[in-house]
């Protein structure tokens, strides 16, 4: 069984966001493998461990992204491909899905796994867009995956509960927290990763032009949300402060 995991390198979720000149500053920010993509990579490796085959990790990014891909190789993925091109500097979900769609079109796979969202833009758009480009069935936000004969059974989170779906393979799935517990790359794994293939390709290698991957959206400004002010801390006997709180909620905030 061949599995492709699509990953993105993102800001650390602990990072404080600073804005200068209408853009988010990446000064001094720690970059990590998008947490939801970790579940995707982990699941890909588990599928391989169970069914055999190969795990390929792919990404659209920059030089720095190699580190995230190397991390996936250390976890146990077999090889990695990075698409890197100046024309992808302002890539949006359309650009990324067109690029990955072209890259994957020539690969053999049974399952494609993505994280269900990236913690930076929180868009949840690439998995569905990529499934459309490859004309694959999709199931997003999955918390369980069982491979059957030519199909897979998944549990996916929906509003107010979850759905159990049968999906014909090949298919694309996007991972949600809860799908698995992500392993750490072991030290021997880190050493082995050094010798695994990490191929860097440009748009030209994929037969794509800058126009093909032109973003459909543009960020014209970024600003910080207005800071919340600390309010009133009520102190005193429990009965008194609770009574005061209820009065405030009713008469001042008018929320009950």
């Amino acid at each position: 069984m061949n599995i492709v995991a699509c990953i993105k390198q993102t800001f650390d979720t602990e990072a404080k966001i600073a804005v200068s000149g209408g853009q988010v500053s990446d000064q001094g920010v720690n970059l990590i493998l998008n947490p939801y993509d970790e579940y995707a990579v982990e699941e890909a490796i588990r599928l391989k461990e169970k069914n055999g085959g190969e795990v390929v990790v792919v990404s659209v990014g920059t030089d720095k992204t190699q580190e995230a891909l190397r991390y996936c190789l250390a976890m146990g993925a077999d090889r990695a491909v990075l698409v890197q091109d100046p024309a992808l500097g302002k890539a949006d979900s359309a650009s990324v899905s067109v690029t990955l769609g072209k890259l994957l079109a020539d690969m053999e796979y049974d399952v494609i796994l993505c994280g269900n969202q990236a913690v930076d833009d929180g868009a949840s758009a690439v998995p569905s867009r990529l499934a459309e480009k490859l004309d694959l069935p999709q199931a997003n936000v999955i918390t369980a995956l069982e491979i059957g004969d030519g199909s897979a059974t998944v549990r996916r989170e929906v509003d107010g509960g979850s759905e159990i779906l049968d999906v014909q393979l090949p298919a694309l799935f996007s991972a949600q927290k809860g799908l698995n517990e992500v392993r750490y790359p072991s030290l021997p794994g880190i050493m082995k990763a050094k010798r695994k293939e990490l191929k860097v390709v440009g748009l030209g290698d994929l037969g794509l032009s800058a126009d093909d991957v032109a973003p459909k959206t543009e960020i014209v400004n970024v600003e910080l949300p207005p800071a919340r002010q600390a309010g009133k801390v009520l102190k005193g006997e429990v009965a008194d402060v609770v009574a005061e709180l209820v009065t405030l909620l009713k008469n001042e905030a008018k929320v009950i």
Binding site: E67, R70, Y71, A74, Y184, P185, L187, I190, M191, A193, K194
Partner: peptide, 15 residues
């Protein structure tokens, strides 16, 4: 080096 950075990150996360 790459592997030093990766093992630093791994051990830090694990710790």
């Amino acid at each position: 080096s790459d592997e030093e950075r990766m093992m630093l990150q791994m051990t830090r996360d694990f710790a």
